[in-house]
Computed example of a mutant assay.
Amino acid sequence: MTHLLGPAEIRRLAAELDVRPTKKLGQNFVHDPNTVRRIVDLAGVGPDDHVLEVGPGLGSLTLGLLGAGARVTAVEIDPVLAARLPATAATYAPESASRLTVLASDALRLRAEDLPAPPSALVANLPYNVAVPVVLHLLTELPSVRSGLVMVQAEVADRMAAGPGSRVYGVPSVKLAWFGRARKVAPVSRSVFWPVPNVDSALVSFERVDRDWQGDRAAVFSLIDNAFSQRRKTLRAALASWAGSAAKAAEVLQSAGVDPGARGEQLTVEDFARIAETASAHTSGRTAR
């Protein structure tokens, strides 16, 4: 039987480890068992899943995932917290502790070969300052991850799940769409954290999609960065340095079936992939001549 951590256990563990949550590491620990149960339920993970958890902290969500029967690999950058987590699992989830692997590592440097087995899902309470880079890195590095549920700052959640034409649609929205579909599923109260953060949180779910088209991800991502670097400008102007000139940018865009007068926030990830492919074909054609 798995026992989830409440406020008293969280504070006792923190005191035992002399842990003082830091803004630098984005440490806000969940102390509400009902929130943990809700996250695990919305993630839909079970005995068939190998879950990658980033930033387990004191182990609140880890225990919930183990309680669902999942195998869990937890990646924790704080060596003190990483060292304590196996003992916490052994104490509060003795029948499940053998299904936990803890890596004292930076998730932004994680490689597939670092893991004991390919994970099928990502479920995490992510530090606000690195949430988007972590998700994009892990989806790139770990194609076995087919789904995810992450808790992030509410504004970040809005950007991650935004579609074309939205005021908050931008680089995170398009890059995440390269891998699949993201949607904001639920808000999370500040009161479930210790210490209480000064921002609101939300849950974002993700489902990987196998695209019919293939493309050079690095080239497409570079294009996306350029398209949104000067958000108010038309694509013809914003992509001038990327293409070599505004005239060349317009030529590529027109060949790709995109209006040079459009702006980045109007385009889908498929549009960006088509532009990058067209640009590559133009370059190859000039080289051949």
Rank of each mutant, 00 (worst) to 15 (best):
Met1Trp: 10
Leu5Arg: 10
Gly6Thr: 04
Pro7Phe: 00
Glu9Cys: 09
Arg11Val: 09
Val19Glu: 11
Val19Ile: 15
Leu25Cys: 04
Gly26Met: 10
Val36Arg: 14
Ile39Ala: 11
His50Ala: 09
Leu58Met: 11
Ser60Pro: 07
Ala74Gln: 02
Val75Tyr: 02
Ile77Cys: 05
Arg84Gly: 04
Ala87Pro: 06
Ser98Ala: 15
Arg99Asn: 08
Leu100Ser: 04
Val102Phe: 03
Asp106Cys: 04
Asp106Lys: 02
Leu108Val: 03
Ser120Cys: 11
Ala121Leu: 02
Leu122Ser: 03
Ala124Ser: 12
Val135His: 01
Leu136Cys: 06
Leu136Pro: 04
Leu138Asn: 05
Pro143Gln: 10
Met151Asn: 06
Gln153Asp: 09
Gln153His: 04
Val156Ser: 05
Ala157Asp: 04
Pro164His: 05
Gly165Ser: 12
Arg167Thr: 07
Val171Tyr: 04
Val171Thr: 11
Pro172Lys: 05
Val174Asp: 08
Phe179Lys: 13
Ser189Pro: 12
Ser191Glu: 15
Val192Cys: 07
Val192Thr: 03
Val192Tyr: 00
Phe193Gly: 13
Pro197His: 09
Asn198Leu: 08
Val199Gln: 03
Leu203His: 00
Val209Ile: 13
Trp213Phe: 15
Ala219Asn: 01
Val220Gln: 06
Ser222Gly: 14
Asn226Val: 13
Ala227Cys: 06
Phe228Tyr: 10
Phe228Thr: 08
Ser229Thr: 08
Lys233Ile: 07
Leu235Cys: 02
Leu235Trp: 00
Leu239Ile: 01
Ser241Val: 14
Gly244Ala: 02
Ala246Met: 01
Val252Leu: 02
Asp259Leu: 07
Thr268Gln: 08
Thr268Leu: 05
Glu270Thr: 14
Ile275His: 01
Ile275Thr: 02
Ala281Ile: 11
Ser284Glu: 15
Arg289Gln: 14
